[in-house]
Design a protein around this nucleic acid. Sequence first.
RNA 1: AGGCCCGUAGCUCAGUUGGUUAGAGCGCUACCUUGACACGGUAGAGGUCUGGGGUUCGAGUCCCCACGGGCCUACCA
Length: 909
Amino acid sequence: MGETHQMGREIAKAYEPQQIEPQWADFWVKEELFKADPNAPGPVFSIVIPPPNITGSLHIGHMLEHTEIDILTRWHRMLGYNTLYLPGTDHAGISTQRVVVKHLMDRGIDYHTLGREEFEKQVWKWKAEAGSEITRQMKGIGESCDWSRERFTLSPEMSRVVREVFVRLYEEGLIYREKRLVNWCPVCLTVLSDLEVVHEERQGHLWYIKYPVVGTKEFLVVATTRPETMLGDTALAVNPEDERYTHLVGKKALLPLMNREIPIIADAMVDREFGTGAVKITPAHDPNDFEVGRRHKLAEIDVMTDDGKMGAPAGAYAGMDRFEARKKIVEDLKALGLLEKITEHTNAVGLCERSKTIVEPRASTQWFCKMKPLAEPAIAAVERGEIQIVPDNRREEYFNWMRNIRDWTLSRQLWWGHRIPAWYCNENKHVTVAREKPGKCATCGSANLEQDPDVLDTWFSSGLWPFSTLGWPEETADFKKYYPTSLLITGYDILFFWVARMIMMGIHFTGKVPFRAAYLHSLVRTGSGEKMSKSKGTGLDPVALNQQYGTDAMRFCLASMAAPGTDIVLSEDKLASARNFANKIWNAARFLFLNLDKFEEGGAKLEELATPEARAKAPYAYQGSVPLVDQWLYSRLASTIELVNDALTNYRFHEAAQGVYQFFWGDFCDWYIEWVKPDLQSADREQATIVWKNLFAAFDDALRLLHPFMPFLTEELWHQLPQRSGGKSIALDTFPTARKAWAQEKIVDAVDIFTQIQGVITALRNIRAEMRLDAKKKVPAQFWSTAELIRNRVRIESDAITRLAVLSELKISPAALGQVGGSVRSTAQFDVRIAYSDTVDATAEKARLKKEIEGLEKAIASKERQLGDETFRSRAPEKIIKGLEATLAGQRIELQKLKDRLSQLEKGS
RNA sequence: AGGCCCGUAGCUCAGUUGGUUAGAGCGCUACCUUGACACGGUAGAGGUCUGGGGUUCGAGUCCCCACGGGCCUACCA
């Protein structure tokens, strides 16, 4: 640079996000730009974050989720909504406890020795140190949250809400304490809800065990997948209809190894087809057996210990690991001759979601929540459309699960979480459930009380999140203004864990749905289709990638792949492509700044261009009319704005992103900037100014259109642009509107003509490339068209065409182009020719023509066939027929031209 | 066991009520270091939409079957 005529401002040649992002991230937080005001005007858009675990750091799934949330939030804010994006974190019971336990272990500390109180202190300490990582990262990626309203699911305020809800549900009889068969994790040492158990198909065996029938020489053979549980058998059962066994019902069998007599009973639950049609009943270790046991008043013998070993009731096997015991028992049975056979059998084993240990079904006393009464109104609300679930195939999943819902196991044997607000008197074990620690037992008045040691499932407090965060049960200004929230965006993998429970709790406690819509986003997967996971080492680290490619590039990349209902496979080349786009925007701005002098020489004040009134004036006319290229560009801009609004309304992020990409790169940069370049240099100062103002106004709109997707880059450029009089940040500026004037009929015609001129230029460039002309060599060309409108336009725009197609001149032919010399391109509307005969490769040209003719003939034939069909003509809509006919007519003309040209060439050679 | 989703260009994926020669990014080929940008420009090659059957004037798009891949729910011992 450094040329003397260069008077514009200059910015760096390449966009360097690392230099720019941190300062704006700080700016947004420090200036509290996104602080919500319940008294502010405008329609409401409110959204609460799916609170990330405090154990976590930002992973690629968050990045996608937060990008989608932030795009919609920023978009609504710019559209003038009263906007709240409420951030927060989740205490994540089991996860956090596991992490801190391990953390302590690494320092040689066994958490048991600390005791509960000290352990909790340690977790809070850990949270203070490491737990804010994720919020720090969220600030770093520029999420437009209201940080003054940040919440934590285990804060004292949230605890109050949790206790309030628990007590109310208890008083309504929905929460109860009972001995039932539950899922026990021998590693996490806690009970789990059904949802926390993941199933996996495994190859196992079916062992056929012979139980001697007492007082006979007969055996009753039963098949089992879990021989070790036989130590807890309290009956054998057969189907009452099964004649094979009717004579045995009422008799007793001798339980091998334990030498215990157990009854042989009849129960309809037994499937006659499976195995031998006889089954062992172990009420303490199998859900079905538990039911049977209750029906027949059988004893429940838990033969195991908390950590998955055999317990005292297992007799000789006590102390053995449950799977060791299995082997030993099988051996012992074999030795006794009581093992009839072993067959292969695959079945689904339940694993603990966290530790991947095989879950042990056990009879245990726990707190439960009755779900049916809560589920019914939640089903109805979705059926009535009060909550829209997107994509809608998830609706069916929701209904399915909700209609078959089972009671929720609420208690967890952990130290980290909301402690269950229930107290037991030591004298009589009466239960007192209360909001605050009671002075005495509600039943017997005893003052000797002890609180239930267990905590609540993490998802219990999560289920209250949309209203607990807004101040419920108080009727706060926030609650009144922002509840129900507008939208929930989360992963489909927690539809049941979280979304369904929020809907149930929300409706039950506030009488209103917690959100109007739930958009379930995609999962980000690895190339091989797995869910990306840091623990498996298959994840991409978004923080490092943001650093490398820029957060805007990451956001744009994810948005452009985020088609609803389909999972995403992220790769670095896609990120690179998004980074290139950011650089393209940066350089378009750079071009604008370098030409700033064109405007300043005009003596106008730049600030005046950014007012709403000035924005509404663009595009400006020159010599009485808006230039053709501006009519076209602004029309494209208007339709892009409409497309983006429409796409975002329907969560079609990919369409919105691809739309702005296409507009900015394909239209604005490739055509518009290239087209107006020489006009900016025009000696006519008025013209140069108008051109710059139109360029500026389009860019200004494009920048605001891009902002929800690429907040950093657009904020930076917005501040560099001379338009700061309007406010503090582009985020608080207005979203561009598609002005109606741009959609006028006159402009539609202009757009059509411009598109044809683009076709003329492309055709000429194509000839040049085919002829292998030197890219810089200017050659003469001819143009011909029967349509006067286009001929006139081509004449007017001749300078641009000759420049963009690198011509020495473009001659408008008075008559149809002859078939001599050079190369011709034809459409139905026009023909162009470059006469440069010495380099024409006739063979290649003929091949090209033949190929095109072939394609056209196929297209024409199929149309002729269709149009000739009477049924088609009578049934297809008018619009389709007319369109087809018009296209056909054009194609016939084009085909004729191509054929003429080909025969000419063939004669010539 | 039940349910859902996917199979479109070499790769990764779009394709909203069925309708005129099926699109994008990356990669590839040729040319171009042109005063915004080589993280760039111009032009181009490349799919008949997994296979089979059906509905329809017309199907990538709807229905059925098969094959291949993924996911979810489920107390069959």
